Computed example of a mutant assay.
Amino acid sequence: MTDRLTVDVSLDQGRAYSILIGRGLLDEAGVRIASLGARAAVIVSDSNVAALYADRLRTSLEAAGLRSGLVTVAPGEASKSYATYAEVCDGLLAHKVERGDIVVALGGGVVGDLAGFAAATLRRGVRFVQAPTSLLAQVDSSVGGKTGINSPLGKNLIGAFHQPRLVLADTATLDTLSEREMRAGYAEVAKYGLIGDAAFFDWCEAHWAGIFSGGPERDEAVAICCRSKAGVVVRDEREDGERALLNLGHTFGHALERLTGYDSDRLVHGEGVAIGLALAFRFSARLGLCPGQDAGRVANHLALAGLPTSLAAVPGGCGDADALLDAMAQDKKVRDGALTFILARGIGQSFIAPGIDAAEVRAFLTDELLAG
């Protein structure tokens, strides 16, 4: 097999796994999944991704002696619902998935979260493998074991921590992404530099075009992001502390997704994150924590990559400051009713800021809405 970039997630109690990164990994999936000791592997995918890659993946699985099956869902964030979760569980059971078998999540972040949650709860827990096909999923959501679905009251409020046994990030699948989805995934790439690696943000400013065009920068960026996330996950698997930093921009972003009804025609997750990153830095600057020039640099770079950076960029609007604040009140980082934000002292200097005054947030959002 071709040499691959490998990132190890060194969890204890036999739960360690590897993230493999490179072009053509789907064709190697059967051999690699068979090595986990399974007899069957059932794929969960959305209809768009399945049309592109499901037959190829099934051929690889069956060539390795594995019985295979396929469960498909509609594309888009709306599939992270109670109803679709039930359909996936029933579909896996219809394929006679046993505890020793493997569920393979083939797709972007929605499929990974949904299939992972189904695997976490089916027969009280079956093994699963992530085969992410979007940039966002390859650099972020496929790693770390967060699985779940959305509630009408908020994003990702129902779920479980359930680590995959293997992540196969075939970077050739990114060639078929739309420009919009590529940009959306790039927001999560830039996020890793903004959290705690100013040198990586510098690198992104110099090399982002190569990530988009599919040059060697693409695999390198995926590996750097996975390495960063793996380190955080090993130190704080269940988000009791440091792992919350990975939600930089997400308190704002998740609220925007809820207020747009998880309608991907209006706003996809990465676009919400991009707006959230810009808002987090502007809010930090407003509080006197972060230089204004850093906030401007963040917004300028995201805009250069084609991403939205303001509330006015949300198609159809996003309500008033009170609606935004109410949506944020369902964020998973809320403690004793008080808002917790991830803020920044500068690029690469993010920190957890509990107990932020709601009046400060409301005033900031009001001004952002007025700014247009």
Rank of each mutant, 00 (worst) to 15 (best):
M1P: 08
D8P: 13
D8N: 13
S10R: 15
S10C: 15
Q13D: 15
G14Q: 12
I19E: 03
R23L: 00
L25Y: 12
L26I: 14
I33Y: 13
A34Q: 14
S35I: 08
L36S: 04
A38S: 15
V42C: 11
I43T: 11
R56P: 04
T59H: 07
S60F: 07
S60I: 13
A63Q: 15
G69A: 09
T72R: 09
V73P: 02
K80I: 09
S81F: 07
A83V: 13
E87N: 06
V88N: 04
A94S: 12
A94Y: 03
V97T: 14
E98N: 04
V103M: 00
V103L: 01
D113V: 03
A115T: 08
G116N: 03
A119V: 15
A120D: 10
R123I: 13
G125C: 05
F128D: 04
S134D: 10
L135G: 09
G145Q: 08
K146P: 04
T147L: 01
L153S: 15
G154H: 12
I158D: 07
G159T: 15
H162F: 01
V167C: 07
L168Y: 13
L168C: 13
L168K: 14
T171A: 07
T171V: 14
T173H: 07
L174I: 15
T176H: 09
S178N: 03
R180M: 10
E181P: 01
E181N: 12
A187F: 01
A187D: 03
A190Q: 04
K191W: 00
G193W: 03
L194G: 06
L194V: 06
F200E: 03
D202T: 15
W203H: 03
W203R: 02
H207W: 05
W208L: 00
G210P: 07
F212I: 12
G214C: 07
E217V: 11
V222Y: 03
K229Q: 00
A230K: 05
D236N: 03
D236V: 05
D240C: 00
G249A: 01
G249H: 01
H250L: 00
H254I: 11
E257F: 06
E257K: 11
T260A: 01
T260D: 08
D265F: 05
E271S: 00
L277E: 02
R282H: 03
C290F: 12
C290W: 13
G296Y: 11
V298G: 05
L302G: 09
A313W: 00
G316S: 14
G317C: 09
C318M: 02
G319L: 01
D320N: 14
F341M: 15
G346T: 08
I352H: 09
P354H: 11
D357R: 13
A358Y: 03
A359C: 02
L365P: 07
A371V: 06
A371N: 12
